[in-house]
Design a protein around this nucleic acid. Structure first.
Lengths: 149, 149
DNA sequence: TTATATAAGGATAAAAAGGTCTTTATATAA
DNA sequence: TTATATAAAGACCTTTTTATCCTTATATAA
């Protein structure tokens, strides 16, 4: 449903947002460590994201990644579309090339609901909303955090 | 969400069910053609399914695939579990290794609902229910059927 | 200006998923 | 018994996804 690369991308962007809120611009090694992804591969993914203008970057000493005005209203949909393409949202759960109300696969109507719920979710949630969940301590970005008593 | 191999498997099983209802036991070439999948690869998939006893087969002339008593109450869950493993049902949408109510990823609660709906769907639908949709003309198995006026 | 830290880019490699080919075992029919 | 049709099995190949390595461009700091 969501590829590993897209997962890395979303986690990375959430981390960039968190850093930006603190006036910082993380670089690839820092960000890769935080999201527990390979450094070089994370670099490639960030490259894809900046090439598609999902965020900005600065080269050179002190450089890093950041959002314009340090705020991201990117939906997960936009991230996933850049990483996997629009088609990934519309595929038949049964694998048929042609599958619609007129020529439904045997699973069409039931699967349609789930696909729509998913679509709605990624169109609603943004990097910012996810980052807020982390900032407020309601969610975690990577490894399990020890709970205090 | 569902791999191509699992899609082939489900489509093949539905076709076997339809044939069985007509007192026939399809072989690999026939079945592969019907579900529009590569013959040799279909053979491999059928091998996996019979090895896990999701259906029976007969070698030799006049052989083919069939369900005991010509009826299948296999859920899609069981097919998918054999093809992709139990883990595929429980993965975090965000890619976290540890993700649960105590240590939720930022998408945990919203994604949980979708994953549960999907789980419920594959636990409910069976090869037989899908085959019934095709037999009654409410759904198609493969290519688009021309509609008569 | 020079050293250094960074993102970008290109080539390659490793792993996983999807797919092919050839041989073997087994059942049926002539 | 022999020929033939079939599933099973094993080795291999191809494509896609994930990942690595090395070089280049660019910004900052000393």
């Amino acid at each position: 449903m969501i590829s590993k690369s897209t997962e890395y991308a979303i986690r990375a962007l959430v981390y960039v947002q968190l850093c930006n809120w603190q006036g910082k611009r993380p670089g690839t090694p820092e960000l890769a460590k935080e999201i527990e992804a390979p450094v070089a591969y994370s670099g490639k993914i960030m490259q894809t994201l900046t090439r598609h203008n999902l965020l900005d970057s600065m080269k050179g000493r002190g450089g890093g990644f950041f959002f314009p005005d340090n705020q991201s209203n990117l939906t997960l949909y936009e991230v996933m579309r850049v990483m996997e393409g629009e088609a990934s949202f519309h595929k038949c759960g049964f694998g048929l090339k042609q599958c619609n109300a007129d020529n439904p696969c045997p699973l069409h109507h039931q699967y349609k609901n789930i696909r729509e719920d998913f679509f709605n979710l990624v169109k609603t949630e943004t990097i910012k909303t996810l980052a807020q969940n982390v900032a407020s301590g309601k969610a975690v970005l990577n490894r399990v955090v020890e709970k205090l008593n």
